[in-house]
Simulated assay, not measured.
Amino acid sequence: MGGLGGLVDGNSRVYGIIADPIAQVRAPEAMNEIIAARKSHAVFVPFHVHADDLPVFVAGLKAWRNLPGFTLTVPHKEAARFQCDRVGPMATITGSVNVVRKSSDGAWEGETYDGLGFVSGLKSQAIDPAGACIYVQGAGGAASAIVAALAEAGAARIAVANRSQLRATTLIDRLETVYPGCCVIAGPSDLVAADIVINTTSVGLNVNDPLPIDASALHSRQIVAEVIMRPDTTALLDEAQARGCRIHQGIHMLSGQVREIANFLGI
């Protein structure tokens, strides 16, 4: 009775994902599979919303009585924090939100499962970040959640690189209060020394994008991971594989978090 393949009628609940661009997202397929498996009377759809339009769009969703919640991805995760009336512990640490639900009093409650889902995806592929030296490219919403979850999982050292060092410093300062001494600004040697290299940026979504990191520094003892889910294998992963690295695709992050998000939303 649930999902796009089942009955959608006047009693159906509507969930969705807000993104820009939207074509690359895989959450609708994954969530509708869960809806069907759980026989929930619901449907999960894509919402293509530009960054400037997010506040008015989210305000409108609060009036949508049969919409219990929604998810978000690039570029909305940090801005969505300010559209929430309350946020959970991970969202408080990271300053970003990727899922929002409507509470019984009508308030928006936000949380982020990006980091927890990413770590779950690593572990599902027998990759344990505990004790590892990790290089993270990016300091946005996804990076914040992933770095926090990696620190929680026991990573020994997390070096953060970003085009804007101020953003990286802000992220590290925020996490220092919870995970002291774990996160640092990436230096020239951190990419080479890393056990795990992670691209948390959207660079690689488009075929003509440059590589987000200097691939010449990669070597065969490393694991190189992506958060991008489409294409399945980005140019960075192709280059890493050619250099003998083990690669970890973005789809594992989705599979790692989708069930927890479904539970949070009450699907």
Rank of each mutant, 00 (worst) to 15 (best):
I213Q: 03
D128F: 13
A130D: 12
A159N: 06
A149W: 00
V184Y: 02
L205A: 10
E109L: 15
I127A: 05
R38W: 07
V49W: 09
A148M: 09
D173R: 11
T71D: 02
R26G: 10
L191M: 01
H76M: 06
V99E: 02
I261A: 09
V25P: 06
A148P: 04
Q165D: 12
A126L: 08
N206R: 13
I35A: 11
S220I: 05
V184G: 01
D173F: 04
L211P: 04
R259A: 10
S144Y: 01
P212D: 10
N263A: 14
I247R: 08
K123N: 11
S124V: 03
H219E: 09
H248A: 04
G138L: 06
R38F: 04
V258D: 03
Q241F: 11
A142N: 01
L171Q: 00
L61W: 09
N32D: 05
G16F: 00
P180L: 11
S96T: 12
A142G: 02
E260T: 09
E226Y: 01
G69D: 08
G141S: 08
V119A: 06
I228G: 04
M229V: 15
E152L: 11
G117I: 04
R101E: 04
P28W: 05
E111T: 01
E176Y: 06
P212V: 08
L191N: 00
V14E: 02
P212N: 12
G5A: 14
Y15R: 10
S216A: 11
A27N: 04
A194E: 09
G187W: 02
T71E: 02
V207A: 15
I93M: 12
